[in-house]
């Protein structure tokens, strides 16, 4: 199944207005690439990417003014291919009448914007990239804790949703429960959101489905967030080795993004919400350049060094003790 976005969705999300062809807004946009037909206006159509949104700015519109009516008729008709999703005119410019006619014939909408070409381009690219990026569904709960996106994972029944509920009660935000859809925004960022039907919902065993926004207010939810940290909940096992110093470098690779992952053992009496809050805070401190373990390590090394020098100077004292 190939993903696509309709022209209607593009209009609704990028502040464009419809100049002509309002009945044809269901046309699909299959790619986030955007074409600026410049060479095409000189008659060079060999590599015309017709399946892309065609964006015309001051350069293209003013160049078109120098063309003869016959050339315009020809080129504008050739710009309107069956797979062309839409034309976008920036800076509220007037498109050539030949384009309006040809587009009407081919049932391609023409959209306009007050913004300049670069702004329109970046708005459209941001929206289309987010919508057309490959998505993956993960099993877990996504919460925002102190502004950090924390994905809580672990086996069913370990208490992910209950932990999220307590985090919400403590003033943090729920993004998605049970199923988190993620996509890669750029090389570094992984964005997670809830599938629309699960927006604001949380399932708590024994209570059922609750709507977090209705119960706790609009401040308790968020529609999407970057996934900064993965906290994996695991049943506490006697004898299993856990990270005691916080020097772990575990990461989970999702698409091309490596997300730092910590394993937290669960057992009765451990308050998971407080532990996750602390993990998030500590992660923030680390990203801001402060690492308590490193700091402690430095001090410990200093102490060891002082003690060793002391011992070498007064070896007899050590022996006596």
């Amino acid at each position: 199944m190939h993903k696509s976005v309709s022209v209607k969705e593009l209009v609704a999300n990028t502040h464009l207005s419809v100049l002509a062809g309002g009945d044809n807004l269901d046309r699909p946009i299959p790619t986030s690439d955007i074409s600026r037909p410049g060479l095409e206006l000189t008659g060079y159509f060999s590599y015309y990417p017709s399946e892309r949104i065609q964006l015309l700015g001051i350069t293209e519109i003013s160049f078109a003014k120098h063309l003869s009516d016959q050339e315009l008729d020809d080129y504008m008709t050739r710009l309107c291919q069956p797979d062309t999703p839409a034309f976008v005119i920036s800076t509220s410019l007037e498109p050539p009448i030949q384009l309006v006619k040809a587009a009407q014939q081919a049932q391609i909408p023409i959209l306009t914007s007050k913004l300049n070409t670069s702004r329109v381009l970046s708005n459209m690219t941001d929206f289309l990239e987010a919508r057309l990026a490959p998505r993956k569904s993960l099993h877990g709960v996504l919460v925002e804790v102190y502004g950090l996106g924390v994905l809580i994972t672990g086996d069913s029944g370990i208490g992910k949703s209950e932990t999220a509920l307590e985090l919400v009660k403590r003033g943090h935000r729920l993004i998605a429960d049970d199923r988190v859809d993620v996509y890669q925004q750029d090389e570094q960022a992984l964005i997670g959101q809830a599938p629309q039907i699960l927006n604001h919902l949380l399932e708590i065993r024994g209570i059922g489905i609750i709507n977090v926004m209705t119960l706790f207010g609009t401040g308790a939810v968020r529609s999407e967030t970057k996934v900064d940290l993965i906290v994996h909940l695991d049943i506490w096992e006697q004898g299993k080795k856990y990270d005691r110093l916080g020097t772990g470098t575990d990461a989970t690779e999702i698409f091309d993004v490596r997300v730092k992952t910590i394993n937290i053992p669960v057992k009765p009496g451990r308050n998971m919400a407080v532990i996750i809050e602390t993990a998030a805070m500590n992660f923030r401190a680390n990203s801001m350049g402060y690492n308590a373990t490193d700091d402690f390590d430095r001090q410990l090394n200093g102490l060891i060094k002082t003690n060793s020098e002391h011992d070498q100077e007064h070896p007899d004292q050590t022996k006596k003790q």
Partner: peptide, 12 residues
């Protein structure tokens, strides 16, 4: 892909 032990996942 959803976890079949997750009610919200399956229903979503």
């Amino acid at each position: 892909t959803v976890n079949l032990k997750s009610i919200m996942g399956v229903m979503s």
